[in-house]
Design a binder for these strands. Structure first.
Length: 290
DNA sequence: AGCCAGGTTTGGC
DNA sequence: GCCAAACATGGC
């Protein structure tokens, strides 16, 4: 068993409740998924996190996946110019931004378009169960994310039967693009602008989904996905009331800098859960008195 | 019944 | 470049 002593990450919040990954499952207080072709179990201990099964490579991979290298304690100081940032960060101790596989983030967030969290999770799990390799751990069946070629070979009607709806052809086209040489693994080495521009070539990927892939799957911490909630919160809490979401994204990245995306997760979660108040109509707000 | 959900695509100016 | 409509599905 591998131990990550002193790890402050809140597993349930980060893996299940923060809407950045959708394929983790919880059994008896532990969290299970297939990572890099092998099933993993994570659970909280008195001082840190434990993982099984364990080997040196896996521990190293998990350390990165859970973003344990980042100094989350420094975030409040880093965003001290924005009182609402302190408020949001303080309310969500242990929320980390995962370093996921870019393909997995890409698939999950294509499915996220104009969709709700419960259904995104259901679709991702269905996709894994239908096309991913099956594993078993602690007598629980676990399914890996299907590789691009597995998805590319699926009939569109079958994807629709799983509930993908109009996103089925997007997913198919993107799977084929990835199979025929799209540089998914090089996005992490490109600068943000180039990586963002490159992702827009994929079917079903617009500005927002591209930013999710960059933030959750490519280590681009400055990527700042602007969805309905973030659009509202940027208007209400930061006074950013630009017309389009891309403009809001640009303003936010200027204001918040290299870790904009990390803060985005805290803000997004507070807005979505109502922990901090936002107006439903974007731009209508009187602001927050903090 | 109608609106909403971590939007994108398409087609018209 | 900006704008509106269409797009599947399920929960409330």
């Amino acid at each position: 068993m591998a131990r990550f002593a002193g790890a402050r990450v809140d597993l349930r919040l980060t893996l299940m409740d923060s809407a950045q990954a959708f394929h983790w499952r919880e059994f008896d207080g532990a969290f299970y998924a297939v990572l890099r072709g092998a099933p993993v179990k994570l659970w909280a201990e008195a001082d840190g996190v434990a993982a099984a099964p364990s080997d040196a490579d896996r521990a190293q991979a998990l350390n990165h996946y859970l973003d344990l290298e980042r100094d989350y304690g420094a975030l409040v100081e880093q965003f001290s110019a924005f009182p609402v940032a302190r408020e949001a960060i303080g309310r969500l101790p242990g929320l980390h931004v995962l370093n996921q596989d870019p393909w997995e983030a890409l698939v999950a967030f294509i499915l996220s378009a104009n969709n709700n969290l419960a259904r995104i999770r259901q679709l991702v799990l269905s996709l894994c169960e239908a096309y991913g390799d099956r594993y078993e751990l602690d007598s629980h069946a676990l399914y890996a994310f299907p590789a691009p070629d597995r998805l590319a070979a699926a009939p569109e009607a079958d994807l629709r039967a799983l509930g993908m709806g109009y996103r089925a052809p997007f997913l198919l086209r993107t799977a084929r693009q990835v199979c025929s040489g799209f540089p998914l693994d090089e996005l992490c080495r490109m600068d943000y602008e180039e990586a963002h521009r490159t992702l827009l070539q994929l079917s079903g990927v617009g500005d927002k989904v591209a930013d999710c892939v960059l933030l959750f799957g490519c280590g681009h911490a400055s990527a700042f996905p602007v969805d309905v909630w973030v659009e509202r919160l940027m208007a209400d809490w930061f006074g950013v009331r630009e017309k389009g979401r891309l403009k809001v994204q640009r303003r936010a990245r200027e204001m918040l800098g290299g870790a904009a995306g990390i803060l985005q997760q805290y803000l997004f979660h507070c807005a979505r859960t109502g922990a901090l108040p936002v107006n439903r109509k974007a731009g209508g707000g009187a602001g927050l008195g903090v």
